[in-house]
């Protein structure tokens, strides 16, 4: 194993670990903003580290790989924060406010709100 492969492998493992934590965060966090935070931070770091690792491993063949991977990393660095910003802004505009008073071990904070809304709609329909 060459030095390139060792360094690249370490970067890829770090990226994979971050992506796993991001997935876990999306599954475990209670509300939209926490989920976005977990998803975005982990995907940005995870994907960047993984792509950089691939570039370093392939640098043994030719140095152009690291340039290509840098371009992809720049693209992710621009697009990923912007998209999560737009998502968070849209959710704020839809009046899904951060969940502060959450009951303990609550996996999905919005379930209560959504169920309540559905119940209200049903009662409205029954009244009609």
């Amino acid at each position: 194993m060459s030095l390139y492969e060792i360094i690249g492998g370490i970067l890829i493992i770090i990226g994979a670990a971050f992506l796993f934590l991001g997935g876990l965060g999306i599954l475990r966090m209670p509300d939209v903003y926490n989920r976005l935070q977990a998803g975005t931070k982990a995907t940005t770091m995870g994907a960047m580290s993984l792509i950089l690792g691939v570039g370093v491993v392939k640098m043994e063949d030719s140095w152009t790989w690291i340039v290509k991977m840098s371009i992809i990393i720049i693209f992710i660095a621009i697009s990923n924060p912007i998209s999560s910003h737009a998502l968070a802004r849209a959710m704020y505009r839809r009046k899904r406010y951060p969940f502060i008073k959450s009951s303990d071990k609550n996996m999905d904070a919005y379930r209560e709100i959504i169920e309540k809304e559905e119940k209200d709609e049903k009662t409205v329909m029954n009244d009609q």
Partner: peptide, 18 residues
Amino acid sequence: MLPASSIVGSGAKLIFPA
């Protein structure tokens, strides 16, 4: 419809040619 925020706007300008 509400306009998109200025962050999205300038980001879109940056990414569009790419």
